[in-house]
Write a protein that binds this DNA or RNA. Structure first.
Lengths: 148, 148
DNA sequence: CCGAACTGGGACTATTTTAGTCCTAGTTAG
DNA sequence: CTAACTAGGACTAAAATAGTCCCAGTTCGG
């Protein structure tokens, strides 16, 4: 339906791991713990560091630590850091968008996009790692379609 | 941030065009009106027909017409028809998902996924083509980030 | 002061998705 | 019976994504 990139997914996993404590973790350590390729984790941490979601410590014994408290980091920020702020409609104003009905469509797309961003911004990393999901009433999970 | 495929976008455009009236339109006609490649529009209409969003009429003078009233078609259905029911998290249960903290993360992902699906299901094709966006209060559009 | 353990940044390649084209078969109006 | 259509799928092309690697800079510990 709507896809989140693997990077965004990885980014959240990495952040979830980091959220365990306030300590400094090296990329290698995170990779080992998560069972991911070291180079990939390193890349992800670099991206997260650039967006100030994690703070980096240079040199030997260096690594990364969460820049803020898990309560103060939303998954929207993580996704943005990994995927960039790409809106769901990527209509780059090409020629096929001239008709009035289409433009009004665009306006609605933006509204929908906003709802999604809002939903993601409302969930903090702390909530994400909580065993009891509070994001939405979980009786609604049945709505989940069979994945492709 | 979150990407909608071009096909889903096209599908909505095609459906918006079809929603103008209850008449039968050939793929060629739709393509011409929308300024899109005929083969592509044809493919999109076939997909929409398979999901019963449009009804097809075979033979000469054939074509497609909206299967239901625009009020009764949600954009979630259109997106599903085009992209398939792919949830935002595509974790296929690989080895890196063993830890408890991750699994709880998955549960929350499903909740978020549901919110998004809900938002899309609430918007009908009729609302989508309406010039005045009612989907969300539009004072919030400022939240739209600069696209990549 | 040197070497080992790190991050920073980016170039590069491989892989997978996505988009788009085309062909053949079947249906129907005139 | 032919022209105008859709049905379905095979195929190719293009682009986005994921993943690897390299080199430079920083810091710790001996």
């Amino acid at each position: 339906m709507l896809r989140l990139s693997k990077f965004a997914d990885y980014g959240c996993q990495v952040m979830a791991y980091m959220a365990q404590d306030k300590a400094v973790h090296s990329a290698t350590e995170v990779a080992t713990s998560l069972g991911m390729a070291a180079a990939t984790v390193s890349k992800i941490l670099k991206m997260l560091a650039r967006e100030n979601l994690v703070a980096s410590v240079l040199g030997a014994k260096g690594g990364y630590a969460l820049a803020r408290h898990p309560q103060q980091i939303s998954i929207a920020e993580i996704i943005n850091a990994m995927d960039g702020p790409i809106s769901i409609t990527q209509c780059s104003g090409t020629t096929s968008c001239e008709r009035e009905s289409f433009c009004s469509t665009r306006g609605n797309w933006q509204g929908i996009n906003h709802i999604i961003q809002d939903a993601l911004a409302k969930v903090s990393l702390a909530e994400m790692i909580a065993p009891k999901p509070q994001v939405v009433n979980m009786r609604t999970i049945r709505s989940r379609d069979v994945s492709a």
